[in-house]
Design a protein around this nucleic acid. Structure first.
Lengths: 190, 190
DNA sequence: TATCAAGGTGACAGTTGCGTCACTTTTAAA
DNA sequence: TTTAAAAGTGACGCAACTGTCACCTTGATA
């Protein structure tokens, strides 16, 4: 009884992600998204009142996906395996943590939907943090993680390190193993 | 023979920096800057044809200042002292490296002045990189830096680490010492 | 104190983005 | 084949940002 859509939700979110990475929050417009989807700008307003709604909807979905992956960390019983798994999933979706940083640029007073999404994002972030803190605790009880380092800094360190740009185009496998070495043992010789 | 300025270049650059950090490149406007300086928007056009000229002028100046500081690294003779000094100056001007990342968002075709500034920024970046690579080499010949790690990754790692957000409000001195520990020896126990 | 160059202003026109809406198109079910 | 719900379109009015310019203000100097 209805017409077929010219674009899938997946394609829309994909385009949203790309546009956010290219233009960042303030430079993001419906025109850019519409052009890339080969639809009229007005069409997007059938689904979203404004760009903040689209962006936060996308972010919630993306975080949800990440949290699903993250929770699987508990299928690994020892810290070392958890650590490897964590690096793997953070690497796989590197950009989303960059995008998550844009949250604070989104005004809250836009509308109820956006406000609800921001609350949801905050909850997801807390869930993520709790899971990760648990992971750090395990590392400390196993005497693998340096106990003098604050949990929040260890976590910030891991997430930050993942974002190192690979301008010099170092081969992927060497890149990953180097990053793991630096994370675990630093840049000094032992 | 002329009227006194209502704002100094220093104050203008300071305001530019703050606005860039708050609104990022795309959200940066002359109106914001003019309001904060208590001048009319039109006044800014007496000095700059457009925002890209102001932004790149500011960036060149900022990078120049940083390079001046950076070159002093060679007054320290051993690697350990150079390392401490480097951390110190990067910490002092943490935000500018965040701002430098915005360079790639600035279109080149704006005008000749902007194009020239972008070329200049590129040169400065190369100078910076050369100096830092020299520093890394010293660390490797002194057998303090892990020789298996690519230079570019070591440098990326240092710069990236500085940007760890201190959401948990860890006291400054502990924060700095923790970061130094993580950089040099990682998050694992020895 | 008259001059004038530099600083400063605000109004104007052009462009781009925003949000709405009356209208058209598609398509599956009646 | 008729119908109507969902999808899509593009033009319109509004708001914000951009760049220009004729004009005003200031203040050192002649």
């Amino acid at each position: 009884m209805a017409r077929e859509r010219k674009f899938t939700k997946k394609k829309l979110y994909q385009t949203t992600k790309e546009a956010l990475l290219e233009y960042s929050y303030a430079g993001f417009t419906f025109r850019i998204v519409a052009e890339r989807l080969h639809i009229a700008r007005g069409t997007l307003y059938k689904y979203y009142e404004n760009k903040d709604e689209l962006i936060t909807d996308y972010m919630v979905e993306e975080m949800n996906h990440f949290l699903n992956e993250l929770h699987k960390i508990n299928t690994y019983k020892n810290f070392e395996d958890q650590f490897d798994y964590l690096l793997y999933i953070i690497f796989k979706d590197r950009e989303i943590h960059q995008i998550r940083e844009m949250t604070y640029q989104i005004p809250t007073e836009i509308n109820e939907k956006v406000k609800a999404n921001k609350v949801q994002l905050d909850k997801q972030h807390q869930t993520m943090y709790a899971t990760l803190q648990h992971f750090v605790q395990l590392g400390k009880t196993e005497n693998l993680l340096n106990p003098t380092l604050p949990d929040s800094l260890i976590l910030g360190f891991i997430f930050q390190t993942i974002d190192i740009p690979n301008h010099a185009s170092i081969p992927y496998s060497q890149w990953v193993s180097s990053i793991k070495t630096m994370l675990t043992h630093g840049i000094f010789t032992n």
